[in-house]
């Protein structure tokens, strides 16, 4: 049973405990940032920032809403990045947890192709082309701990568990959220292991909140590999 995370944005306060807890556990350096007229910083995910609370102020139904979206890798069930890479030494899925893992070998991949394959625009490259993104704190999970971000979350906006439990919880949370937010929805719950619950139109949170149509398209070679299934591994098409 793979693991999943539910991120219920309707009860997220944007405290960013998760964002720092991620850096803390992974020993990631801080980025040099500037205030550009918003509380959000850094402005985007990066090789050193796997988790980013995106903040948007929107007038919705005549009311001001401050939307927080703790963006991170969705750990797709069928991960296009993994398919695109086609190199288990660079990108692989931990079958015990479902976490999609990037290794140093990603340096050998075409970084832009991998980034372009992600429907959620998540992976980021270092100057040398090595790729990085959220690893679901796979080391913690294997040792019975929750991911650092989930542990830190004060309100319960982030929940971690077995996929079936999280799916059930997501359904319950959605029903609850709909009472306050009639347009509440889960984002691609069948396709990802990191499931977002949003109260409003997902595009208001970030451009890639839901799987984007113009991204993640499989190249011919990837599609072919998929079609051929396990044999592709041997054939290295």
């Amino acid at each position: 049973m793979s693991k999943s995370i539910l991120i219920d944005t309707t009860i997220c306060t944007g405290c960013r405990g998760c964002q720092v807890a991620c850096k803390q556990w992974h020993n990631l350096p801080a980025e040099k940032t500037t205030n550009v007229g918003s509380f959000q910083n850094p402005q985007d995910l990066s090789f050193d920032t796997y988790k980013l609370v995106r903040m948007n102020e929107e007038i919705i139904n005549g009311k001001l809403e401050w939307l927080f979206f703790a963006d991170q890798c969705r750990h797709c069930i069928d991960a296009p990045c993994l398919e695109t890479a086609f190199d288990e030494n660079a990108i692989y899925k931990d079958s015990a947890t479902g976490a999609v893992q990037y290794t140093k070998t990603t340096k050998k991949l075409d970084a832009d192709e991998i980034i372009g394959s992600c429907p959620y625009n998540i992976p980021r490259k270092a100057v040398d082309g090595t790729l990085a993104k959220c690893d679901m704190c796979n080391d913690r999970i294997h040792n019975g701990l929750k991911p650092a971000c989930v542990t830190a979350c004060p309100t319960g906006a982030m929940q971690f568990g077995d996929r079936d439990e999280i799916l059930a919880l997501a359904g319950q949370r959605l029903e609850k959220a709909k009472k306050k937010f009639p347009k509440a929805m889960l984002l691609n719950p069948d396709e990802v292991n990191v499931i977002y619950l949003v109260g409003f139109d997902p595009e208001l949170y970030t451009d890639y909140a839901v799987a984007s149509n113009d991204r993640g398209g499989l190249s011919r070679s990837v599609a072919l590999r998929k079609m051929m299934g396990p044999f592709a591994k041997m054939m290295r098409v």
């Binding site: 405290c15 960013r16 405990g17 720092v20 807890a21 830190a152 979350c153 004060p154």
Partner: peptide, 19 residues
């Protein structure tokens, strides 16, 4: 990191506590 056995925060920490 946050102490999951602490009855108040149950493991949670904000950005400052996490740092």
């Amino acid at each position: 990191e946050g102490d999951p056995d602490h009855v108040i925060n149950q493991g949670s920490l904000c950005s400052k506590g996490s740092s």
